[in-house]
Simulated scan of single mutants.
Amino acid sequence: MMESCKGLPGFVWVCPQPSVDRCHRVPRQSVWQTLSFPRVYAAEMPTATDKIEQAVSTDTIKTVNFVSEREIQEYMMKETGKDRLVKMFSKNHIGGWSPEVQFIKQVTTQTALITFLITSFVGGRHAREEFVRKHQATVFSTRFRAFRSLQDSIFMKSLLDGAKWTVKVSLFTVSLLGISQSIAVYRNKSSPWEYSIGLGITAAFLKCNLGLKGMFAGGVFGTVMGLVGGTAIWGIMYALNETQEQRNYWKVQKHLEMEKASRGLLVSPETGEQLQPQPMS
C-alpha cells in the first residue's frame, strides 16, 4: 500500500500490509532510477551452491596409482636389455609399433619430405640455368617445342636430384636414430653417447666408397659431432622429462595395469568396480 505524503515532496508512505497502521517513509524514485538497471546485492554468507563451485574450482583431482612402485621396480629388475630390444621391434597386442619405432618412422618421413622439396627445387633451378647455357645457339622449330624441352629438362633434373638426396638423407636418419634408440633401449638410459656412437657409425658407413681412410675420418668426425648434438638433445629430453628411463617406467606401468585388468584385479578403491585402462599406443 503506497500513499503520497503531503507537505513532503519526493517521499511516499509505504505500508507493508494493509492491516498494519505503522508506515515508514522512503524517498520517491526518480525517472532515471526507474529506467536504469536494478541493483543486485549479493548475500554476505555463501550459499550451498557457492560452496560446491568453490570446492570444485579449488580442489585438485587426485589420481590413484593402481600399480605400486614396488611392482614396477620388480618388473624392471627382471627384464633384460635383450627383452627391451625385442619389444622395441615387435608389435603390441593391438598391432601397433613401439613408441621408439614410431618416432623413427615419423622423423624419417618428415625429413625425407622436406629434403625432397628443397633438393628438387634447387635441382630445377640448376637445370634451367644449364639448359639456357647449352642451347643459346640452338634453333628450335617452334616455340612450343623449346618450352617443352625446357620443362622436360627441369622436371627430370628435379625428380632425380630430389630422389637421390631423399634416399641418402633417409638412410642417414634411419641409421642414426635406429642405432641411438637401440643403444638407449638396451641400456635403459639416455645420454649423449648413443648419439655420438650412432652418428660415428653412420658417417663411417656413408664414406665406405672412400676406403678405410675415408671411413675412419668420417667416423671420427661423426663421433665428435654426435657428441655435441647428443648433448643438446639429451638436455632437451631431460628438461621435458622424456628420457628413456622415464619412458620405460611409464611403459611398464601401463603394461602392468593392462595385465591386472585382463585378470580382473584392477578395481577402483572407491566404487569397487573393475576398471579398464586405456590401451597402450
Rank of each mutant, 00 (worst) to 15 (best):
S170Q: 03
P46K: 04
G96V: 04
N209V: 03
L113W: 04
V228A: 12
K164A: 09
K134M: 12
C208M: 15
V31Y: 02
A204G: 03
K213D: 10
W32Y: 05
R187L: 15
V174M: 04
G95N: 02
V132Q: 08
G218C: 03
K87M: 10
G214M: 12
V107Y: 01
I104M: 07
K207N: 11
S19T: 10
G200S: 11
I179R: 00
E245S: 06
V167K: 10
S98H: 05
C23F: 06
A239K: 06
E69N: 11
R39D: 05
M45G: 06
R263E: 11
D50W: 02
I233N: 05
P279K: 04
Q244C: 07
M156L: 13
T47H: 07
V101H: 01
T60N: 11
E3D: 07
F216L: 15
R133V: 14
G162F: 01
R145G: 08
W32Q: 10
F216K: 14
H135Q: 08
M280E: 11
Y186A: 15
M88W: 01
S90E: 01
P9K: 11
F144W: 07
F121R: 13
W13R: 15
A184M: 14
G230N: 00
K51N: 09
L117V: 08
R247H: 01
F37K: 14
L240H: 07
I201N: 01
K168N: 08
Q253T: 15
M2H: 05
T115A: 04
W250P: 01
E245A: 08
T138P: 06
K6D: 05
V86N: 03
A232T: 09
G7N: 08
